[in-house]
Amino acid sequence: MARVFVPYNMRKLAGGKTEVNVPGKTLRELIENLEARFPGMKELIVEDDRLKPGLAAIVGEQPTRQGLMTKLEPETEVHFLPAISGG
């Protein structure tokens, strides 16, 4: 089970929960399971079968570069945050 930190704008969908434990061997599976449990969440995260432009998924300590294919270790933390730009 991954430990998903629910972004503030999705907490209503998650019944006010700030963290949820969700199964999934990959980020794709995890998001499908999130959607099954909290309908409407997927469209806030995924667009055209990939993470929405401008959104980053942090898996463990680092933003993932494998997108929805990212493999998840058990007990991994998952965060959805704005993608960081730079100058």
Partner: peptide
């Protein structure tokens, strides 16, 4: 505009988001 997930029209605020722990 996106005000903490709520859609808002007739606004100059494109986005309001929050991190809370």
């Amino acid at each position: 505009g996106d005000d903490l997930g709520k859609k808002v029209k007739n606004t100059n605020m494109a986005r309001h988001f929050r991190h809370e722990f």
